[in-house]
């Protein structure tokens, strides 16, 4: 799986690159539109992560280029602007998804995984971690051969944990992933606590042990149980 990261901020680019490499993606970096175009000409990529605000133009031009050349590349846009127009034009111009800055790395990872699952490069719809497996096509979760009876949000929660295995997910990041801005942060932690309690109970009852651990009153980590 090869990724092209187009981002002009050096620190952010370096961080993202090391994060993506940790997650077993081969990642190359371009800081400008020109550099990105060159790389796209010379190499093949499965996914491009493109920041809209680049020093020599808009990332949206690059999206248009890729789509006009019918390159088989999935696209995720990063936008610093929260403007709806940007999101709409981004998606209309052919991007597969967008992410508004500042974002959580776990969220970026979840989005990338989701794009990959949807794209034709990885035909597997299964996400697996130890005994637990999730079929993203059927939206079903299993512990061994026992099907878990999850609500929609519990399913989303489990999938988010599994694609970010062994990573501490802050409560903010989880809440944002599940509910967006439908909820005040102040209230959200109780909800999250209840959700996680219910999800844990269902996994334990199905014999999956307790893979979801609370960490430092900050968040939770999914650790596979065998």
């Amino acid at each position: 799986m090869k990724l092209l990261l187009v981002e002009d901020n050096a620190i952010l680019a370096a961080d993202l690159q090391s994060f993506l490499q940790e997650n077993r993606f081969v990642t190359e970096h371009a800081a400008t539109l020109a550099e990105a175009r060159e790389k796209l000409n010379d190499y093949e990529y499965d996914l491009a992560i493109i920041d809209i605000g680049l020093p020599d133009g808009s990332g949206l031009e690059l999206v248009a280029d890729i789509r006009n050349q019918r390159l088989p590349i999935a696209i995720l846009i990063l936008t610093a602007r929260d403007a709806v127009e940007d999101k709409v034009t981004g998606l209309e111009s052919g991007a597969d998804d967008y992410l508004t800055k500042p974002f959580h790395l776990a969220e970026l990872n979840a989005r990338i995984r989701s794009i990959i699952r949807r794209s034709r490069f990885d035909r597997s719809n299964m996400v697996e971690a130890g005994k637990i497996s999730v079929d993203t096509l059927a939206s079903e979760a299993w512990v061994g051969d026992k099907r878990l009876n999850l609500t929609r949000k519990e399913y989303d929660l489990l999938l988010y944990f599994m694609v970010n295995e062994n990573r501490l997910l802050t409560r903010e990041s989880i809440v944002e992933h599940l509910w967006g801005d439908h909820i005040d942060q102040a209230d959200s932690f109780d909800f999250l606590y209840n959700h996680i309690k219910n999800l844990r109970k269902k996994i334990v009852q199905a014999g999956g042990g307790n893979p979801i651990r609370a960490m430092y009153a900050m968040g939770y980590k999914f650790i596979r149980t065998d």
Partner: peptide, 14 residues
Amino acid sequence: AHELQTPLTVMRSK
């Protein structure tokens, strides 16, 4: 608003 978001993203990723 725009320029704040990138440093904030850097901060968050760090």
